[in-house]
Design a binder for these strands. Sequence first.
DNA 1: ATGTCGCTTCGACCGCTGTCAAAGCATCCC
DNA 2: GGGATGCTTTGACAGCGGTCGAAGCGACAT
Lengths: 245, 245
Amino acid sequence: MDDQRVGRDVGVDLAAVARLLADGTRAAFCLALLDGRAWTAGELARYAGVTQSTATSHLNLLVGGGLLADERHGRHRYLRIADRRVFELLEVLAELAPRQPVRPRSLTVATRQQALLDARLCYDHLAGAVALEIKDAMVERGLLVWDTGQPAAAALTDRGAAWFADVGIVLPASRRPPVRACLDWTERRTHLAGVVGGALCGHALAADWVTRVGTTRALRVTPLGRQALHDHLGLPIVSSATRGR
Amino acid sequence: MDDQRVGRDVGVDLAAVARLLADGTRAAFCLALLDGRAWTAGELARYAGVTQSTATSHLNLLVGGGLLADERHGRHRYLRIADRRVFELLEVLAELAPRQPVRPRSLTVATRQQALLDARLCYDHLAGAVALEIKDAMVERGLLVWDTGQPAAAALTDRGAAWFADVGIVLPASRRPPVRACLDWTERRTHLAGVVGGALCGHALAADWVTRVGTTRALRVTPLGRQALHDHLGLPIVSSATRGR
DNA sequence: ATGTCGCTTCGACCGCTGTCAAAGCATCCC
DNA sequence: GGGATGCTTTGACAGCGGTCGAAGCGACAT
């Protein structure tokens, strides 16, 4: 029993996964892909501000490590997050990550960041201030139970199911959890995810309640969307997220 | 809009946290501390097979980064995991981590690894094959509901509460979730955590159902413990985890 | 007082890894 | 065919980060 050096041999190589996210560029890629879409290699390279060759080697590592999945279409290489568990990892990680004192360099960057805070995609559902308003309104109207204790007991009520039918949103049958609480890394509060959150988001995009801002995962709530959220959930026409700024 | 380089400025520095776990030695430290105890710096150094000076610098990083907390007592420095969220991070990370083809160098190492698989501490509760047997038995006897869908609905039944009282285990009042499903990285199945899991484990240690193996987080089930688990839960005297090996 | 033990600091070394430019290869468009 | 466009490969370079030994500093024991 002279060899106390058991630490490395337990058979789980945590560091291997962590190393993949330990680089700023690779982390930026993953953060970008959090919107659940597939980005091309070039888009990611430009997004993170590196050359294509650099991006290629990073993407090879991420795909090789199982964090990302890729798909070739013609001369394009599409990247997306490989797995549900990777989303979870990124969420937990983001929760522990230090917030840098945000010091935007230019006005357009500032605006873009503000947009991210107001409304954006998080995987397949809505996040940001608007998402929180929606969730709160649904709870207040008795459409949703939202007890985020552990284990979290969040669910759609009967009135909630009726509301979805009323608005014209079909809730697909799925093995995935219908209602999930997803933690927001900017607001540090939970918002609506799961099948219900996904369906709501899909409808919001399809019905032009929200539109994408460029190729980022930021969203803009359209006047049409404001009106709809007012009609269906009683949200103010001028969002409290934009008010007084 | 010429500067597309927004990727780094979103304000969450994922890479900073990941970098802390991206080193084999630091990861080994964290894995060791997963047993929830406080280790001294020297113990950790020996465990990971590095010199004290190396350990010091790593520990400074981990404490500085908020993953570990330290406490000085005389000439000793005690380290423990800082935060509940860090445990979660390590769990998610371990789930995604590659399993190295375990090729133990010596017989004693092999035995020690096997012990880890059979029974060990995971934070404040039991893990390993024995923990799974216990959980299954409790479910079978109607002491526990165990629906690990999402959101997970696991809870103690009335009969379960009575069982704890009967065995003489006091369930402390706490804001923590009473019953939690914790994922096991060796078995890839969930076992009993939360306040109930912690209380059960505390009793098992106090009543000598299990004993620590050296300074590791491995546990050995005593004959007394085997008998108790048989009497209270109907487990076989010869564990199925040890049987036929 | 003197020695031991546990941890920290310092300095030096080395290797790994992220970066880019340039050239190469495949695909698509005209 | 010819010329973009998107991605990959290669090679060279720089810097960061992990490692150790040796010396230093407290705390504790005798």
